[in-house]
Amino acid sequence: MLLIPCPYCGERAESEFSYGGEAHIARPADPEKTSDADWADYLYTRTNTKGVYFERWMHAHGCRRWFNIARHTVSYDILAVYETGAPPPKFDTKSEV
């Protein structure tokens, strides 16, 4: 089980959290004018990175706040935790720790 450092409550077990998928995916500003291909891309296409992955988590059994995590998908190391809306920290996303 992951030990996730909630930015508000501190370190808690993974079972207290809900997973929210990849972070930093912006909804198209004008859905009416977005092509079907772009809309499908927004809905379904994810980077599925082998390396540092930016993802959303929600502390469902705790403070119920959303936040972002940078996690390495090979080692499962949590490399950064930052608030929703903040820019992602810089990593070499191809690196294999």
Partner: peptide, 10 residues
């Protein structure tokens, strides 16, 4: 104090 789950109950 802490919010968590006990026996799967919040």
């Amino acid at each position: 104090c802490a919010q968590s789950h006990l026996a799967k109950t919040g």
